[in-house]
């Protein structure tokens, strides 16, 4: 509804309308979020995940790295809810501690990717003479298949959580920047942005108030995707042998350790896999909820 207002009106009434819209957003934002079912479900899942990760030492029933030859490959039971692995370690405890590592990697990647993606994407689309330069540089990075880049970096720097974060951020930033740029390019040509130019709004103001705000929905979809993919990508890197090193568990390296015995001891790979699926599902639900509420064009639909 604010879109129509901008498109129909000109001059002073535009500013007034924008100000009212902003006040409405801030007051109703939280309420809307919590009332939104998919956001609420997703947030609840993420909250549980974060709490478990943060309080892992209090929640985990056993030491996640304690081997025991006596308890090798026990199926799930009351004693070991998720069973044990080929080292005789409790899978539940490893999953709980693994949540920490996976969460840390994914959050770091999302933050870095978001920051660099927005900066580069906006620069490329807004400052015309920079566009070709930035985009060719990003194309160069993108032309490196991400997994191969990660493997090469891990071979060079040694596998570690930091290497994974660097490799994944470098891999996802160009894609994020492209999505931001594509979104901005579409929005840029729209009448209300041209109107804002006409009324003499500053470049920074236009970028933040109009363009970025409106390019946000593809960005959020992209970042939820990055978050999801980061958790999965950590698993892939571990699968290829270049994830965080042992013995510290991550959701990915638990699956990687279980992949060879998936027929004999399905529980090793299945439980962390399910945890990944549920957490990623929660993240995506949250992202969708956010998107519905932030994107003004969606409001009338609700």
């Amino acid at each position: 509804m604010s879109v129509e207002a901008i498109q129909d009106d000109t001059g002073g009434s535009l500013r007034a309308e924008m100000a009212r819209a902003r006040r409405r957003r801030t007051t109703q934002f939280v309420v809307r979020l919590l009332r939104h079912p998919s956001f609420a479900i997703g947030a609840a899942i993420l909250l549980v995940f974060v709490v478990v990760a943060v309080f892992a030492p209090l929640i985990a029933p056993y030491d996640p790295n304690k081997n025991s030859y006596r308890f090798v490959l026990y199926p799930p039971s009351a004693e070991f809810l998720f069973g044990t692995d080929s080292f005789g370690r409790d899978i539940l405890s490893r999953v709980i501690y693994g949540a920490r590592v996976s969460l840390y990697i994914a959050v770091a990647v999302v933050v870095l990717t978001g920051i660099f993606g927005v900066i580069l994407g906006t620069l490329a689309s807004y400052v015309r003479w920079l566009d070709a330069f930035v985009m060719r540089g990003l194309d160069g990075l993108m032309a490196f298949p991400g997994v191969l880049l990660a493997i090469a970096l891990a071979a060079a720097l040694g596998p570690s959580a930091t290497t994974a974060i660097v490799a994944l951020s470098v891999t996802f930033t160009p894609r994020t920047a492209r999505v931001v740029r594509a979104g901005v390019l579409v929005v840029q040509g729209m009448q209300y942005v041209e109107a804002a130019h006409a009324v003499g709004a500053s470049h920074l103001r236009i970028i933040f108030r109009y363009i970025l705000a409106n390019a946000l929905s593809p960005l959020i979809v992209q970042l939820t995707y990055v978050f999801a993919v980061s958790i999965i990508a950590e698993a892939i890197l571990s699968f290829l042998g270049v994830g965080p090193p042992p013995p510290a568990p991550s959701l990915g390296n638990i699956i990687a350790e279980g992949r060879n015995t998936i027929q004999e001891a399905w529980w090793i790979a299945v439980f962390p896999g399910l945890v990944i699926a549920v957490v990623v599902l929660g993240l995506n639900l949250m992202g969708d909820g956010l998107r519905d509420i932030i994107d003004p064009r969606q409001r009338n639909e609700r």
Partner: peptide
């Protein structure tokens, strides 16, 4: 369909491949 799409997104592909093989 969105839950289906989300499940697709949420499953690590190498793991899904192993399940398909089995």
């Amino acid at each position: 369909s969105m839950v289906g799409a989300l499940i697709g997104l949420s499953i690590p592909d190498f793991w899904f491949g192993l399940v398909l093989i089995i």
